[in-house]
Nucleic acid binder design. Structure first.
Lengths: 160, 160
DNA sequence: GCGCGTTTGTTATAATATTACACCTCGCGC
DNA sequence: GCGCGAGGTGTAATATTATAACAAACGCGC
C-alpha cells in the first residue's frame, strides 16, 4: 500500500456502487469498440479501481486471486489492453497504473503525484497546443505526451 | 545502440573537444557546489556524453571498463549524483539517461523522444507557470516536473 | 462442427534497480 | 603526524519490473 502519510489518513478508494458503475461503463466501451472485456481484464481493472492511488503491477498480480498470485503475463497483458482502451494510465515515474478518471482529455492527461501519501490527481494539460507548436517547429510529430508533476498534496502539507 | 532508423543514419554524438569541454565544466560545477567529481562519476558522465541519445544504465555499466562491466551500484550511484547536480536527466518513459544540454531550465525541461531513431531533444516547457497555477489551485506543491513527448522526429518522417 | 484469429496459461528468463555491509579516503581538529 | 568522522567505493546478494516463446483453449463466422 505505498508510502503511508504519517499525519493524515486520507484514502480515496471508490465506493462500491461507483466501482461497479465504472466496470459496467468499461464493458460498454469495449463492446462499442468491438473488443472483448474478458475476466482477467475486468479483474485487473477492478483492482486498479479499488486502489487508493497508483498501483504497481506486482500488487495487482499479488491480489489477483483470493488464494494466490497471478502469473505476470496475465496481468501485464491486461494492463496493456486497458491502457490501449484508455481505461487506465501508466505513471512512468512510479512504474504504476491508475484508472483514468475522465474521458475528456484522451491523449493529454497530466498527473500531480504526492510523494508523501501516494495519491494522484489527474488534470488536463494546460496549453497542450503550445507544446505541439514547439514540437512542430522542430518537425517533430507527437504521438503521446507524459506529464507528471511530483510534489506534496494539500493534505500532506497541512491544508486539511 | 537502440532501435536504429532504417531510412536515416543520423547520429549526433559529441565531438571530442566538445566532450572534454563539458567534462571540464562539470568538474567546475561540482567544485563550486563543494561536491566531489570522482572518477566513477566522471566516467559515467563521459559515457552519457558519448551516447548519441538517451542511454540505458546497463549500457553504461557494460561500457564502463575497457575490459569488463562495472558493478551496478557503482553506476547507479553515479547516475543519482549526476542527476542531483543537474548534469543529466532521467527519461522515465525509456528508463534511460541523457546529458542535460543547457543550464537554462533547471527544473522544467521537457523532451521530444523519437520512437524510430531514439534521439531526444530537450526543450524548455512552455507555460510552466500555467501548470503550477493549476497545481496550486489544488493546494499541490510541485517539486519536479517530467514532460516527455513520444513520437517521430523530422528526419524519421522524411524531412531530410 | 471447422477453421481461424485472439486470448490465456505456463515456464523461463531478461532487464532494471536496490540493500547491506565492509573497507577506504579525504579533510579537519588537534 | 594522527585519529576521527563523513562521504564514497567495492562486492555479493537480492529485489523489482517486464518480456519471450510456445502450446492450449476460446469464441465467432461460416
Amino acid at each position: 500500500m505505498s508510502n503511508a502519510c504519517a499525519h493524515h489518513d486520507h484514502h480515496h478508494a471508490l465506493a462500491a456502487d461507483t466501482k461497479s458503475q465504472r466496470l459496467a461503463e468499461a464493458e460498454t466501451l469495449c463492446a462499442q469498440a468491438g473488443e472483448r472485456m474478458t475476466s482477467s481484464r475486468l479483474r485487473t481493472y477492478e483492482l486498479i479501481l479499488e486502489a487508493s492511488g497508483p498501483i504497481k503491477a506486482y500488487d495487482v498480480i499479488d491480489r489477483f486471486h483470493p488464494q494466490g498470485a497471478a502469473k505476470p503475463p496475465t496481468v501485464y497483458r491486461a494492463l496493456s489492453f486497458l491502457e490501449q482502451m484508455g481505461l487506465i494510465h501508466r505513471i512512468e515515474s512510479l512504474n504504476a497504473f491508475v484508472a483514468c478518471d475522465t474521458r475528456d482529455h484522451p491523449h493529454a492527461a497530466g498527473f500531480l503525484l504526492c510523494d508523501c501519501c501516494g495519491q494522484s490527481v489527474e488534470f488536463a494539460i494546460p496549453n497542450v497546443a503550445d507544446i505541439e507548436v514547439s514540437a512542430t517547429n522542430s518537425h517533430f510529430q507527437i504521438k503521446h505526451i507524459t506529464l507528471e508533476a511530483r510534489g506534496l498534496c494539500g493534505a500532506c502539507r497541512g491544508h486539511a
